[in-house]
Amino acid sequence: MAHVAEPAGAEALDAKSESRVWKKFRSHRSAMLGGVIVLFFVLLAILAPILPIPDPTATDWGAVRKAPSLAHPMGTDEIGRDVMSRLIWGARASLMAGVLSVAIALGIGVPLGIAAGYFGGWTDSVISRCTEALLAAPFLILAIALAAFLGPSLGNAMIAIGLSATPIFIRLTRGQVISVAAEDYVESANAIGLPTMKILSRYIFPNVLPPVLVQATLTVATAIIAEASLSFLGLGQQPPAPSWGSMLNTAKNFLNQAPWMALWPGIAIFLVVLGFNLLGDGLRDALDPRET
């Protein structure tokens, strides 16, 4: 080896980095599948008002707990409401609860975690002790307490779930930051005199992001289910407006007589959670320049 071999895959990487990430993401099959699933439910949620479906809150005493039929493709519930229509409208509450509460948790948890991990000292002590105190309370109990304190509504439920999920993100981010900050390349950023904010945004943040991203997609799933639990206690989506969680919770009383009432929202939650997980996996791979 007189001269070192040419780096491989050069032509694919000559393009701008944004399009490189997109290209890699597109060629990632399972990520695209996840993206399609999530997009499908998002579209359903957005288009709910203009889709030709019955009013999700209209009751029909002549069609109580009817099995799926042409008139009601997914059957009806215990007071004759159309399950498909409720499922589509419920996508709004559930997706919002999942995505927004995780956004809240990320928005608070990642900066605090970075501050704790990078600056150390008393900053770390204060943040870490508070985090540990919050982690001592079980996730759901904390969410219920917060939601009860804030008052029953979907918005407050999302805030409660987001805040309850925050400590996990602080802890995860802090640990990642501590390991990344010990890398030589962070010292090299110091050596060229890069300002601290840029070290955090260019060196620390992108390198701690992958595990945080995966945790976030998993937490979307947890948050959707937590919203369901809060709805069940009357602290989340207020009846008669539908959410998948509240549908599941009423359905459990009729599992023998009307299994379809539980089946459809269950499948929907399963699919959305799967979609987010695949999406997160693919995003992590696409963001990593070392993976090809």
Partner: peptide
């Protein structure tokens, strides 16, 4: 004053292109 590191495998940020890595000191100074 500048520094050259021992391990060339850990001293370059894996998420930055070579152009950005070399251009960064210029951006600062």
């Amino acid at each position: 004053m500048q520094f050259v590191f021992q391990d060339p495998f850990s001293s370059l940020n894996p998420r930055m292109t070579v152009g950005k890595l070399i251009g960064e000191p210029l951006e600062v100074h």
